[in-house]
Design a binder for these strands. Structure first.
Lengths: 412, 412
DNA sequence: TGAGTTTGTCGTATCCACGAACAAACACAA
DNA sequence: TTGTGTTTGTTCGTGGATACGACAAACTCA
């Protein structure tokens, strides 16, 4: 069904002509934000709008302080040179926050996706309460902001949390590793920061997936399955270029796909969940190590495997088999054109590739496997912060005029 | 993220003012098609458009022959009565086709979702070739059309096929039960029917899900998991009110979710697929019956269970357990707000309900289970035809003016 | 029968993109 | 250096589409 008319069909709200303006502004800003600086003539050909329209629209974005135009330098080609429009990264920032168990990361991300400043603080396991977390975030945001020299405004605040996040109200339904339950985290953090910019909270795997489709290996890919492993396993599901959130925002909990009826108990209450077979603990245990050795233990295990230690190799083989078992199922269910592996799975990939692909090929439908690409993440440690930045920018990108107007104290 | 601006954000095509007209026409027609007849004043309040706009738009739909207005009867309330707009069902029909293994169904579905005429022909297992199928469809369409008295026009042709359908080109990638492989079915059927109306082909489970969200129990529900069982198991995934098709259109093949590492071989080449545990064959075999006894054997089994036959009860209990095992996984992955059970699962539901819910509750995340509703399908045998009708109407609904114009010989 | 209410219709205003005409800025060749 | 051709920004008028206000129409109720 190529029914992409350019409008969302389900919204039963009438469309006025101002909506057109808003949509075109949004489109242009998205273009500059995601695909980088572009000359006006490039924008004309990319958008299909006329020169006059693009001129007026860019003018409005400039007036909003989101974009500047460079004075039209000659690039050697014939004809009058076109001024290059570019987002004002340094002046329009998002505060990106990554709430993990062992650390809290905060970054100022400039429009366009540039990480301007990063601060990460480690924290003890007894400082993961909601209040302590918020206090730590506020302090770290202060550090980040102190290091920003120029004048700037904050367009939004994006937060990635290790837990189930209810997207409708930015609340955390449950975060087992933090001991949180039904916390209106977005509201509370917003109040604590005391800033006008909207706060948007999401699950960490979803945020990582967002980073991957906007700034990573999956740029331009419409149907992506992002799989992230560590102690637990999380996933981000992208369909038609958009996140599948599910009814409450809990979609993507692929770590709790039951795969082994005879498996071991999972912390979620079930047993035989995928993450009990492919999580860090299972891998380490199979290699005869302590389940909670963490990333260092995994690295040691991989060294062993390189050295040919049989137990390590066997453990990785079993990891590959179970990884393929679960992935094949998800591929059959979702038919993605790309699977992106992150975290633990990124690390072990070189050791499991052959067996993993065999297992997937054996279990996935041939038609779905045919056009599938499996890749490792291209983003480093800042993936979550990049994604949280995109989360924060989403509102401005969707409606530049409205969002900037909403920031009343936005006199740049 | 409530970034529903009314426009699709990713489309990098400029929006012109004609697009506004098209979107509003589409919206009004959708309203009348899905929610039934409505007075002009109702439409005004539902869409947020002004009286003048609604008047003009309805006028255009009338001119296109899609809608008629009833002469404004008084309904007892104060004020000037508003004329009621209603779709012209009898004059605007879709040809809906259901290609199953044992039979072919063809219906004429009127705009608004009224089934005007149905014909179903049984066919032998040796008449499932592509050519024979197309011939049978053409003949049956002829029978259906002969029974339509009034003058009418065909707006589209929707086809549900038991197999993997590539949505981009309406081709069937593989249909094991029919022995088809890489068949450009849409194009060939269109040519054979020799009609101007566009042909749209989709997987049968997807089509059934479409029927369910538009005309069944899932009307108005945005995130739905439709699960359909028979010999095989299929699924239709709805996210934010739209079908998740996957990159090629193969998404929803939940029957091939691996669930049992020690399971039996599946026809897909893998082993331990969900459908080898919950399909008709498995249920019958566990009850000591022949695997391919078909629906009659299942009914007999259910009778046995009612009579307290131990083997039948045990088989149903095991069915419940495995059904819950797979459903829990899908619920964790997709976080739907409603699961709809069809076919075999609809039939066995009264016998498995308790154990099924227990199993899901045990294995699904509490947060995802909390707001979940599990229901049986509300649609009878014609579900596939209703869904195929919606498939066919989609283009007209998305762009009434353009679609009608494209039907050049559309002089009603 | 008249007052009050709700709704359709018509003309005007507004918003927005398009298109044509013109000017500006460049490369290239004589 | 100058002129030509090319590409692009700008300005202004036009057309499409909805909003808004005024007025007429149709109905209920007292």
């Amino acid at each position: 069904m190529s029914s992409r008319t350019g409008f969302a069909a389900t919204s039963s709200t009438g469309v006025r002509s101002e909506t057109v303006r808003s949509a075109n502004l949004s489109m242009l800003l998205r273009e500059l934000h995601f695909r980088g600086a572009a000359s006006r003539s490039e924008l004309v050909s990319r958008t299909g709008l006329t020169r006059s329209s693009v001129g007026a629209l860019i003018g409005e974005l400039v007036k909003l302080g989101l974009v500047v135009e460079m004075p039209a330098a000659s690039d050697g080609s014939r004809g009058r040179p076109s001024p290059v429009a570019i987002v004002r990264s340094a002046e329009n920032v998002a505060i990106a926050v990554d709430v993990s168990v062992d650390s809290i990361g905060v970054a100022a991300v400039g429009l366009g996706g540039v990480v301007l400043t990063v601060e990460r603080i480690e924290r003890a396991r007894d400082r993961v309460s909601v209040d302590a977390t918020i206090a730590d975030i506020v302090a770290t945001v202060g550090m980040v902001r102190a290091r920003l020299a120029q004048q700037y405004r904050i367009l939004g605040i994006g937060v990635a949390v290790v837990g189930l996040v209810q997207r409708s109200d930015n609340s955390v339904a449950i975060a087992p590793n933090l001991g949180w339950r039904d916390v209106r985290f977005g509201d509370r953090l917003g109040a604590a920061l005391g800033h006008a910019a909207p706060v948007c909270v999401a699950n960490d795997a979803d945020v990582a997936a967002l980073a991957e489709i906007h700034r990573g290996v999956a740029v331009g890919v419409d149907d992506v399955l992002y799989v992230w492993g560590e102690v637990g396993v999380g996933g981000g599901l992208i369909s038609k270029g958009e996140m599948i959130t599910g009814a409450s925002g809990f979609a993507g909990e692929i770590g709790h796909l039951p795969v082994n009826p005879l498996g071991r108990a999972c912390q979620c209450g079930s047993r035989g969940c995928w993450e009990t077979e492919v999580g860090e603990g299972a891998l380490l245990q199979r290699a005869g190590r302590s389940r909670d050795g963490g990333r260092e233990a995994v690295d040691a295990l991989l060294d062993d495997a390189l050295g040919g230690v049989a137990l390590a190799v066997a453990a990785l083989n079993e990891e590959a088999t179970w990884l393929g078992f679960g992935l094949a199922g998800l591929i059959n269910v979702l038919n993605p054109s790309m699977v992106v592996l992150g975290g633990l799975f990124d690390a072990v990939y070189p050791f499991v590739e052959g067996r993993l692909l065999d297992e997937i090929k054996r279990r996935a439908l041939a038609s779905s496997f045919a056009n599938l690409v499996i890749v490792r993440t291209a983003l480093g440690e800042d993936a979550l912060l990049l994604g949280a930045g995109e989360l924060a920018f989403e509102q401005v990108l969707a409606d530049p005029l409205g969002a900037i107007r909403a920031l009343t104290g936005s006199a740049l």
